[in-house]
Design a protein around this nucleic acid. Structure first.
Length: 907
RNA sequence: GGGCGCGUAGCUCAGCGGGAGAGCACUACGUUGACAUCGUAGGGGUCGCUGGUUCAAUCCCAGCCGCGCCCACCA
């Protein structure tokens, strides 16, 4: 016999091992079977499972388990990502904490070795945590982005794209992270609004000439007053870039400056002359209308500089300090920087510059202003536009097919509105900066000779041969982590080799991920998959929500509101955590996670457990030759119909990625139908003496329990698997639930049975309601008399009398000719029932209760009469709706009459 | 500035053209041989506001008010 509760701690590891040992996680080797595949969004190799992972992987596992039960050959491809910056950051921090030498002192090879050590040490953690969740990944195929195979794929892709002209090296402005001292991509920059200042500076005209500048205007905007100026006012939020200015732009149509275009200004402090140019970039409405141009330190200015042929002057070094020495003669502006400022941090430099300008009388003004400032998403420091040599991918070319694939519906997003986000980004895509000045990652397969010529090849030997045997040095940089993740759907399946898996499982069926990596990852997989496989990487993209705390706040360590999924699993079991996540995963809304909710679903597992316990206690064991179409008992016919409806609802929810609906349908069926009603209905049958009915009920109950276990298995794999084994009896049911067939119920709906059971449920409910409202003591067992009603009703009452008496706690229920004095009365389906309760209940209260009932029904009648009295309603509404309302009116009227009679009898 | 989404019971959320729902919380009752991690019954909502479309609007449309997120070069 079963214990009273399921013990997840003991069962989970045991069951997981059983599944894995039985090879159930591997795709079944059936060449004709339909396939279903998912590649896992690879977590950081040194990471650990947070609630977002738990959601993401629960949903994948739900789909995987469902599809596996449908009989498909299913692959869930697991693996991890080397996560360049994140991992390097962790190891560097470790080095610092241990008081060890920095990575630069350590040297590249030693450092990388150290990172590998850390990967070996902590790399298994998150995969083991996924096992605790119950994830049924094919672990025999686990991959890592820096595996030999995947690295080979990276090399091949890089070289191919280079040869196609889709990868190039260029000196451009990039987002530079001064903390990590590497370039990062646009996506890794977070713009935040911060309090800043807006400084106005005066740049004197170089030749000392003057001009008239309007300072007052009439209603029509015409100038009415002018002042004489020998300077131009420019404004900036970043004064530290002043020394890098190589021009000032005014709008070509800006009459105020028309005479100045072509003249030069003397850039203060740097003491160089810079031209005034006409460029559309300058906005006459903004500031003074004249804008300083710093091509080496601002993305807009870079473009203006290119258009206007302005030189680029770099001021900063890799740590965003004013340079102390020249490393690039072509751009470095060392001679513009006063000697005492060299080496100053950029923010120090800002302060110094403002002070000096003020001292020079060139500070025109300053005001407070909210400023959009770019921060590195990992480092949290202000990112600097910085002029460096980097590698780029021509993403706009690759994006074309990726856009078309979604436009054409070959890949579909769920919910669909994410397609807009995807299109919006893809159609405006910028060159993708793929080089990183890090050590941990795939080193760029490019080599240089002494003259700086570049040779791109899959190996050094090949590069040397391309270079005609010259001595070469390899590019120091590594690739953006997302470069290798972009290949994940085919690199994990063996590409560049044409493997069997690649053929069978690519394109994958669905990608399950959160919206925050649509650009980072989904878009890039689309591009690379289409380019290298000429085929979409996945048919569907399911975008799920973010998990927040119970009040909707983002979880963060600093806020202390982080919910650790592993702690929840420890406390409530993996099934409860999974069910909670699935039940809350409604499309298009974030999930607010609370412990109470998990506790509730743990209780649901216990409920299921105890239902199974009841089945065992009553010998409800599966019968091999059971035919659900042959059952005779109304209760059993009804239950099978309900089971059919429930399994259809669960399947529909899963097919359409409506996890909450699928989970909800399973929940309601198990708790509110099977436990609340069926098991109660079954009790009299199971303890009765009609042996045929008893046997049928046992078999049906066992059969439906089996259906319930199957429906719940994708959500709650552990408790269902455990019960599957415990409730097998000697049915000969063998094998594990994880690979059992999904229930195929068909043609079991039975309207007659359904109608009769609905009647039964409402009769019992009404009697219970009366008992509760009239405070009839629980141990009182009144008789119930049906004082109206026909022969059919009498037959029904007789059929179900034992059941009604048991569930409504009656002594008896039977037809009667008249209502005895001193009865409480209820009306169910137009039939009046009397419960003689003289001396038990308060008849004043009973009168009041009946009057309240009458009032309620009268209200409904009034509403319906008004509606049906509206000619337009009758004329325009669909016939079925009108007929439905008419039927309701008839029903309510009869009910009201019956209630009135009952009230009259009480005097 | 552009885009997306959200405002429904005390809390967290489903529903989304024809009688307002769930879970939790709350109240009352309950040792009914599966289950107190439970059962039975109950209270609680002008479905953000204002207009419009419709025979009918919580649901569709428009505007407004609040809240959140994403994207964007305004110096």
């Amino acid at each position: 016999m079963l214990n009273k509760t399921f013990d997840p701690k003991a069962a989970e590891p045991r069951l997981y091992a059983e599944w894995e040992n039985a090879g159930t996680f591997q795709p079944k080797d059936a060449p004709n079977a339909e396939t279903f595949s998912i590649v896992i969004p690879p977590p950081n190799v040194t990471g650990s499972l947070h609630i977002g992972h738990a959601l993401n992987n629960t949903l994948q596992d739900v789909l995987i388990r469902y599809q596996r039960m449908l009989g498909k050959s299913v692959l869930w491809q697991p693996g991890t990502d080397h996560a360049g910056i994140a991992t390097q950051m962790v190891v560097e921090r470790q080095l610092a904490a241990e008081g060890n030498i920095s990575r630069r002192d350590m040297g590249r090879d030693a450092f990388i070795e150290r990172v590998w050590e850390w990967k070996e040490e902590s790399g298994g953690t998150i995969m083991n945590q996924l096992r605790r969740l119950g994830a049924s990944c094919d672990w025999s195929r686990e991959r890592f982005t820096m595996d030999e195979g995947l690295s080979k794929a990276v090399l091949k892709v890089f070289v191919a794209l280079y040869e196609e002209g889709l990868i190039y090296r260029d000196k451009r402005l990039v987002n530079w992270d001064p903390h990590f001292q590497t370039a990062i991509s646009d996506l890794e920059v977070e713009n935040k609004e911060v309090d800043g200042h807006f400084w106005r500076f005066r740049y004197p005209l170089a030749d000392g000439s003057t001009y008239q500048f309007p300072i007052a205007f009439d209603e029509d905007g015409k100038p009415t007053e002018w002042e004489t100026r020998d300077y131009v006012v420019v404004a900036t939020t970043r004064p530290e870039t002043v020394l890098g200015d190589t021009g000032v732009a005014v709008h070509p149509d800006d009459e105020r400056y028309a005479g100045l275009v072509g003249k030069t200004l003397r850039l203060p402090i740097a003491d160089v002359e810079i031209p005034i140019v006409a460029d559309e970039h300058a906005d006459p409405e903004q500031g003074s209308g004249a804008v300083k141009i710093t091509p080496a330190h601002d993305f807009n200015d870079f473009m203006v500089g290119e258009r206007q042929g302005l030189p680029m002057v770099n001021l900063f070094d890799r740590e965003a300090r004013l340079i102390r020495e020249i490393t690039d003669e072509k751009v470095d502006g060392l001679d513009r920087i006063p000697e005492e400022w060299r080496g100053l941090d950029r923010f120090e430099a800002r302060k110094e510059l403002v002070e000096r300008m003020e001292a020079l009388g060139l500070l025109d003004g300053v005001e407070d202003r909210k400023v959009q400032q770019p921060f590195g998403d990992r480092s949290g420091v202000v990112v600097e536009p910085f002029l460096t040599d980097q590698w780029f991918v021509k993403a706009d070319v690759l994006a074309k097919d990726a856009i078309a694939a979604v436009e054409g519906g070959r890949t579909k997003f769920h919910p669909k509105n994410w397609e807009n986000t995807y299109f919006n980004w893809m159609r405006n895509i910028q060159p993708w900066c793929i080089s990183r000045q890090l050590w941990w990652g795939h080193r760029i397969p490019a080599w240089y000779d002494e003259d700086g010529n570049v040779y791109v090849a899959e190996s050094e030997a090949e590069a040397i041969s391309k270079a005609g045997g010259k001595t070469l040095t390899q590019d120091e940089d590594v690739l953006d982590t997302w470069f290798s993740s972009a290949l994940w759907p085919f690199s994990t399946l063996g590409w560049p080799d044409e493997t069997k898996e690649l053929e069978r499982f690519y394109p994958t069926s669905v990608l399950v991920t959160a919206f925050d990596i649509i650009f980072f990852w989904v878009a890039r997989m689309m591009m690379q998959g289409l380019h290298f496989r000429h085929e979409i990487p996945f048919h569907d993209v399911y975008i799920h929500a973010l998990v927040r705390d119970e009040h909707g706040a983002k979880m963060s360590k600093s806020k202390g509101n982080v919910i650790d999924p592993l702690e929840l699993i420890d406390e409530f079991g993996a099934d409860a955590v999974r069910f909670t996540l699935a039940a809350l995963a409604a499309q298009g809304r974030d999930i607010r996670m609370s412990k109470e909710r998990v506790e509730g679903y743990r209780n649901f597992g216990t409920k299921l457990w105890n239902a199974a316990r009841f089945c065992l206690m009553n010998d409800c064991l599966p019968q091999q030759d059971f035919d659900p179409k042959a059952v005779k008992q109304t209760v059993n016919q009804w239950l099978l119909g309900e089971a059919e409806a429930a399994s259809a609802a669960v399947a529909k929810g899963l097919e359409t990625y409506k996890f909450n609906e699928a989970a909800g349908a399973a929940y309601r069926f198990v708790w509110n139908v099977f436990c609340d009603w069926h098991l109660e209905f079954a009790k009299p049958l199971l303890s009765g003496d009609d042996e045929a009915a008893k046997a049928e009920t046992r078999a049906t109950t066992a059969y439906v329990l089996e259906v319930a276990l199957k429906l719940l298995h994708p959500f709650m794999p552990f408790v269902t698997e455990e019960l599957w084994a415990k409730t097998a009896g000697d049915s000969g049911r063998d094998g594990l639930l994880i690979v059992a067939d999904w229930p195929k119920l068909d043609g079991l709906a039975n309207e007659t049975a359904q109608a009769e059971m609905n009647w039964l449920v409402s009769l019992i409910t009404e009697i219970r309601k009366l008992r509760s409202e009239m405070n009839i003591p629980p141990n009182a067992k009144p008789d119930a008399l049906a004082v109206s009603g026909d022969a059919d009703l009498a037959a029904r009452l007789q059929r179900h009398s034992a059941l009604i008496c048991r569930l409504a706690r009656l002594e008896s229920i039977a037809p009667a000719a008249a209502t005895p004095d001193g009865s409480a009365q209820i009306v169910v389906d137009e039939v009046t029932y009397a419960l003689p309760l003289e001396g038990v209940i308060d008849f004043d209260a009973e009168r009041a209760r009946l009057e309240k009932e009458i009032e309620k029904v009268a209200g409904e009648i009034l509403r319906l009469e008004k509606k049906l009295g509206n000619e337009k309603f009758v004329a325009n509404a669909p016939e079925a709706v009108v007929a439905g309302e008419r039927a309701k009116l008839v029903e309510y009227t009869a009910q009201k009459d019956a209630l009135r009679e009952a009230r009259a009898r009480l005097g």
